[in-house]
Design a protein around this nucleic acid. Structure first.
Lengths: 233, 233
DNA sequence: GTGACATATAAGTCTGACTTTTTGCGGCTG
DNA sequence: CAGCCGCAAAAAGTCAGACTTATATGTCAC
């Protein structure tokens, strides 16, 4: 994670960001820099820096003689990892989790297909190692260890795809997977079918079989969607 | 586009952002706030605000006693529309265009499938209207008019998917399509096959046929990939 | 060589004064 | 009464300067 205490303005953002993304200040609300500065007991300069950051995330808009107005949700930079984290920590966590899982279901199969074409020998080795780690921890309440390998697996696939946009989703996927284990439906042990699929994806990538890697990953995605009742079972 | 002159710090970003994303300051480079402020002839407060924004995009990291260091490309928030615009305007425009097109090819088919399930009657009407507009302007050097309808079409599909993450890619797709018409391979007239596919997607969405909408959109995506020689023809 | 300590450096913070833009009101005019 | 113009207030924006804090690095003793 990004360090939380990277300056006073960061401390302010840790409170204000979640508040806005949680809808505590509904869209159209008008804030004033001076009042906020007083409320958070920081100087105006610090407050201005915080507002600038929120502005760059399209969460708010600052206009002269008006103040700092909260923008409608549809305009937010929802791909900003910081925004994602704030929303995952807040009230619309379930909604955010669904959006992200659907996004994953679109991206990861394609990424796996590309990985089969572009993965280096080293990446293939990492992948099988991750898959084996998942197998080894798939039974007997070793959920934390399992999670570590699961996250690593998906991160390697996204990176090996060779597409920078896909690669940057590694953190997001990590957040989703961690969330599932820690807050959502927490199975006693992971679904054995899912574990097997991961192993087979690793094999397909190693074999350079793009369409098989893609199809298998699609099946993993379907499983994730079903877990959230997005697809009929 | 976002208004260019939203304050002095914005003016600074318009120069500094493109410079960094273009690799003019290679990763690891160290800048100093005071020097930058002098160079851009602004006060330190303004410069600090600009640095904060760059920091929130993960383009730079500011540390005491060290300065403002440029982060490696792999850590940038490549989904930030501002960053995308800077990169599209700079040297690695071709590379960025490829990444984005691959991203589109993963997302849009899934989005079209969801649109077929969730689109309102109004959205269906908009979609057919866009498709007809594309047909009407597909012959006779009316590329600009064609582009407008093409952009609108894809934006409606992404919005109608009902997924906020997909919806927010509308601007990105618009940027890519506009780029293709204005800077890249500029055909005399658009490919008739592509135009037909758009019409058929509109029909499939209207009919609520998710898998057909998805498959047809996948074909559109394949065409876009072939244009950039990402797929063998 | 290793450890503790001193120092210089650059970011971080605060304050107060000033500027600029913009909204909304009020009065003027037709 | 409608419409227009211009004034005044409000809030963000900008600047300059003084001060604080963290920290990388060099120095010295052991």
């Amino acid at each position: 994670m990004t360090t939380p205490g990277r300056g006073l303005h960061g401390r302010v953002l840790d409170t204000l960001g979640p508040a806005i993304t949680a809808g505590e200040y509904p869209p159209g609300s008008v804030l004033r820099t001076d009042e906020l500065a007083q409320h958070f007991e920081v100087s105006r300069s610090v407050m201005r820096e915080a507002v600038r950051v929120l502005e760059s995330m399209h969460l708010v808009e600052s206009r002269r003689r008006v103040g700092v107005t909260v923008r409608p949700k549809a305009e937010w930079n929802v791909y900003d990892p910081q925004v994602i984290r704030w929303r995952l920590a807040g009230a619309d966590r379930p909604h955010q989790l669904r959006s992200l899982t659907v996004l994953r279901s679109a991206i990861e199969p394609v990424a796996a297909g590309l990985a089969a074409q572009h993965a280096t020998a080293e990446q293939c080795a990492e992948l099988t190692e991750c898959a084996l780690g998942m197998v080894a921890n798939s039974r007997g309440h070793k959920l934390e260890q399992y999670l570590v390998h699961d996250i690593a697996f998906h991160r390697v696939v996204l990176t090996a795809s060779g597409n920078e946009m896909f690669a940057r989703l590694g953190d997001v996927v990590a957040e989703v997977l961690a969330g599932r284990t820690h807050h959502e439906v927490m199975f006693e042990d992971p679904d054995p079918a899912a574990v097997t699929l991961h192993v087979r994806v690793a094999e397909a990538v190693r074999a350079g079989d793009a369409s098989r890697a893609e199809e298998l990953t699609r099946q993993i995605a379907v499983g994730a969607l079903q877990e959230l009742d997005i697809l009929a079972p």
